[in-house]
Design a protein around this nucleic acid. Structure first.
Length: 314
DNA sequence: AGCACA
C-alpha cells in the first residue's frame, strides 16, 4: 500500500513524559504538573489581525488547555497557550503544527514548546471552588449586594472567563475529549493511516455551529469512496459516513461520537487532498443538521393546554 | 458552493 507514509498529524505522539524524579513523586500529586515543567506552547504564523478570541476558540478544544494569550508587540503576533501538563502541550503542539489557520491570508501555524510557561493572572486555573470576587469579570453583571453571604454553590459560568489579558479556560468539570489521543501511556505507533496526499489551502468562509457531524465538500465527482472512508474511519470518534453524489459534486457527511472529536477532525483534515479527487483540498464544515434521528419527540414541548405544564424555569 | 438520513 502506498499510503503508509507519515501523516503530518499522526506522528506518534512523541516524547513520552520523562519520569519525574522519585523524590517528587512522593510529595506531588501526579495529576499536577511538576512546577518546573514547561507546559506552554509558542505559536507563530498567526495572521496579523488575529484576535485572542480566535486563538482561544481554536485551542479550547484541546485536552488540558488552560489559557492562551497573544503578544502583539513584535512584527508578528506571538501566541502562547498553557496546558495542564507537558504531554498536553506536546500533543497540542503536534496537532497544531502546520495547521492552516486562515486560508485567506495563507497563514500556517508553526508551533514550538515555549521557553517558559505562560504566566496566568491569579486565580482561576487550579481551584474550581474559588470564585474570585475581588476581580470583577466583565461577564458578570449582577454584583449588587456587597455582603454576599454564601459562596455560590454552583459552578462558575460556563463562558470563558476574562482574565483581563489573555483568555483563560474554565476548569473542565468533565472530560469532553474522549477519543483525542493524549500520550498518558506510551502509545503504539498509530495504525497505518491512509494519509492524504497533501493539504491545500481552502476557503471556508461560512460554517455552521459545531456539531457532531461534518460536511465534506469540494470532493471531485469521481472521488474514490474507499479512499474517503479510509481517511475518516481511523479518526478518533468516527461513527459513520454517508456519501452523496450530486450532479458535478460529491459531498459527504461524517458522524462522530461527539462535537469534540468532530472538531478535532474539522481542524486537522481541513484542506486534505485525496488523490482520487481531482479537486484540491476538501472543504470541511460542520453539518447544518447533525446526523441522527429526527426530532423524536421525547415528550418534548408538551402541547399547551393539556396536563403537562411547560416548565420553563431558568 | 453543493447539506441527507431518520
Amino acid at each position: 500500500m502506498a499510503g503508509a507514509g507519515l501523516h503530518p498529524y499522526h506522528q506518534p505522539w512523541a516524547a513520552p513524559p520523562p519520569p519525574p524524579p522519585a523524590a517528587a513523586i512522593a510529595v506531588e500529586n501526579p495529576n499536577r504538573p511538576s512546577s518546573d515543567e514547561v507546559r506552554t506552547i509558542f505559536i507563530s504564523g498567526l495572521p496579523e489581525d488575529v484576535k485572542e478570541r480566535e486563538l482561544h476558540n481554536l485551542l479550547r478544544w484541546l485536552p488540558g488547555f488552560e489559557a492562551s494569550q497573544i503578544n502583539y508587540k513584535g512584527e508578528q503576533p506571538m501566541g502562547f497557550a498553557l496546558f495542564t501538563m507537558a504531554q498536553h502541550a506536546m500533543a497540542a503542539k503536534n496537532a497544531l503544527q502546520d495547521l492552516v489557520f486562515d486560508a485567506e491570508t495563507k497563514s500556517v501555524l508553526h508551533t514550538e514548546m515555549a521557553k517558559k510557561n505562560l504566566f496566568v493572572k491569579r486565580g482561576v486555573v487550579n481551584d474550581s471552588s474559588s470564585f474570585d470576587q475581588s476581580k470583577r469579570m466583565r461577564t458578570g453583571g449582577d454584583y449588587t449586594h456587597a455582603g454576599y453571604p454564601s459562596p455560590s454553590p454552583f459552578h462558575p459560568p460556563p463562558a470563558p472567563v476574562w482574565g483581563g489579558h489573555g483568555y483563560i479556560a474554565p476548569p473542565a468539570p468533565y472530560d469532553p475529549y474522549a477519543g483525542y489521543p493524549v500520550a498518558q501511556v506510551p502509545m503504539p505507533p498509530p495504525t497505518p493511516v491512509p494519509a492524504p496526499s497533501g493539504y491545500a489551502p481552502i476557503q471556508n468562509n461560512k460554517d455552521n455551529a459545531p456539531c457532531n457531524t461534518l460536511f465534506i465538500g469540494n470532493l471531485g465527482e469521481n472521488v474514490n469512496e474507499e479512499e474517503l472512508r479510509g481517511l475518516f474511519i481511523v479518526q478518533p470518534g468516527y461513527k459513520q459516513m454517508k456519501v452523496l453524489r450530486q450532479e458535478r459534486n460529491t459531498v459527504c457527511f461524517i458522524e462522530f461520537e461527539d462535537v469534540s472529536s468532530a472538531t478535532v477532525v474539522h481542524q486537522n483534515l481541513q484542506g486534505a487532498v485525496l488523490t482520487s479527487s481531482g479537486r484540491g483540498g476538501m472543504r470541511i464544515q460542520f453539518s447544518k443538521n447533525p446526523f441522527g434521528r429526527r426530532k423524536d419527540s421525547v415528550n418534548g414541548a408538551a402541547p399547551d393546554g393539556n396536563g403537562t405544564p411547560t416548565t420553563y424555569q431558568q
